[in-house]
Structure formats: structure tokens, C-alpha cells
Design a protein around this nucleic acid. Structure first.
Lengths: 146, 146
DNA sequence: CTACTTGTAACTTTTAAAGTTACAAAAAGG
DNA sequence: CCTTTTTGTAACTTTAAAAGTTACAAGTAG
């Protein structure tokens, strides 16, 4: 059994950053897709997940998505939970229950993986879209000087 | 682009715990495979990775693998680095370089992902095979009482 | 009414993990 | 030595989830 670690979080942050960076401009799924270099459907799917999670307001037929909360309150953790809520580490679920090791390792690993997960989540909760926007504006400011 | 999050770390810890739990007994890849419920080749592949990383001593034709370091010095981080050295979060590498957002988001996300990675690694370095063995022995002690 | 746009379902493609087959090479016991 | 058992690996197939695609209903806006 395998679970893929996707680029959904990456693309979702990209999408949200785009919405904020180009607010007032063309915010259609088509325009955003060109920046992410993917298809508009992928963008709409991500936006759909974000709006279902209550992080974004979208309207059918209207290319004007809007954040529901301030940038500095929108954490990477919230975005990840919305678009890609998979645990970081995966426990093998197919071990021999009759073996003293195979019969207990799953529970034991689940507990310890939880600790790792918690550490990662704590850090993801400490990074917000505002941080990303600051970095973005700084990077573009430096570009201008060249 | 996608990267799979595998059960390799899980299986590698299982394997190492098995070796310690059943030391002196049958430690063939066949026996271990039965506990993990996989094929002996998968077990040998993991053992090969662990021995190349200097964590395990294996000998051709001899079913007696041994740890190179004490249980309490063998961390989950070291095991993970040996068998599945993938970052936790993946940055989308295919974004539009000509876009102010797409052109910078990769570098920015890489930096922030690094922080999350570091937090997870710190926690993985705090958990050792000795912890797993303690949990295992306790779980089996409780089983006996039933 | 027309031209866009979003929201989704259903489908295909892609790709890395996991599993399989096969066999060389070393070990161990006679 | 010879036989049996085992590890080490290469090469291949299978599997499953992400990513991409097609299609279209359902809104928006003039």
C-alpha cells in the first residue's frame, strides 16, 4: 500500500498567493493555471477544496475568488488539511497479527508517527500566507533592481 | 511530478525490531518476511539499504544480521535516511518562470518546507529503536496476562 | 440571448512503490 | 568438494494514487 505525496499543497499555496498578488486583475482558473503550469480544472479542483474548507469564497461564473480570513491567519497547516490531508508517515497495515512483533508494531508506530506528525504540524501552523507574500514581494523587488 | 510516501520506514523498523526481538532465533529474510507479510526479496532489499548505510551487518548466505550500534542510539531518522530519504513535502517544480508568483514560489516554498522538514527530523531523531523495543515488550507482557 | 466562467463527474495517463522471477555468490555442514 | 541454504541484485511486472483531460451542467454579466 502506498500513498502519494503530492504537490497539491505547493499548488494551493501558489494559487492563494496568486490571488493575493494579482487581486483586482484576472483571477480566472485559466490565468492561475498558466502560472502553475497546469490545467484550469486542476486549479478549480483545488479552489473547490479550499472553499469547502471555508478558506476561500468562490462564485460560479465569476472569476473573483477571495480569502475568507486575513493572510496572516491563513496557515500552511490549514491549507494542507484542506487540499491534502494525508499523514506524513505511513504505517504498513498488512503485518502478521500472530507474530509478537507484527501484531503490535502497527499500534506502536502509529503512536510514534503521531509525535512526528505533531512536530511537523506545529511548524506548518507557524507559517502563514502573509509570510509567503512578504517573501514574494521581496523577491520581486530585488528583480526590479537588476 | 509526484513522489510516493512509502511504508519502507515502517517495514525497516519492523525488520530491525524483529532482529532484536528474536535474536538467536531464525533471522532469515524468509522468517522476517512472514512477520511483515511481504516477500523475502523486499526484506533483503531493505536490509541491503540498512547495511549500506552502516546500520546493520549482514553476511551472504548467513542468516544472522546484527545491528552496528546499540538500540538506544539507532534513531528513526537514521533508519529513514537509509531506506527512504525523501523530503516530507514536495515543491511543484513546473511553474511559470515568467510570472512574478510562479517564478519565485519554488524557492520560497523550498525554504519554508525546510523548516517543516527540520521539525519532523528533530522529532524522528528523538525516537530510537530502544523505545520501540520497550513498547513491544510491554505490549507482549500485557498479552501474556490475558 | 450570448459569451464566459465555475463545479464536478468520469475517464485516461503517468509514475514510483511494491511485488516477482531469476540467478550469481557466499556460507555451513558433511 | 558437493549439496543445501542463504544473501545480494538486476530486471521485470503489477498496482494504485496523483495528475491531467474531456465534457457538460449551472451559474454570471453584459
Amino acid at each position: 500500500m502506498t500513498i502519494r505525496s503530492s504537490t497539491k499543497l505547493s499548488d494551493a499555496i501558489h494559487l492563494l498567493a496568486y490571488i493575493r498578488y494579482f487581486k483586482g486583475d484576472d483571477l480566472s482558473s485559466e490565468a492561475i493555471a498558466k502560472s502553475i503550469e497546469t490545467s484550469p480544472v486542476v486549479v478549480r479542483r483545488l479552489m473547490s477544496q479550499l472553499s469547502h474548507a471555508g478558506l476561500l469564497i468562490t462564485t460560479r461564473g465569476k472569476a473573483q475568488p477571495e480569502l475568507t480570513i486575513p493572510e496572516d491567519q491563513l496557515t500552511l497547516l490549514a491549507i494542507q488539511q484542506a487540499v491534502d490531508p494525508h499523514p506524513i508517515l505511513t504505517v504498513d497495515r498488512k503485518t502478521n497479527p500472530k507474530c509478537p512483533v507484527g501484531g503490535h508494531i502497527q499500534t506502536i508506530l502509529t503512536d510514534h508517527y503521531q509525535e512526528v506528525e505533531a512536530a511537523a504540524k506545529k511548524q506548518m501552523a507557524a507559517i502563514t500566507l502573509a509570510d509567503i507574500m512578504t517573501d514574494l514581494h521581496e523577491a520581486n523587488r530585488k528583480d526590479e533592481l537588476k
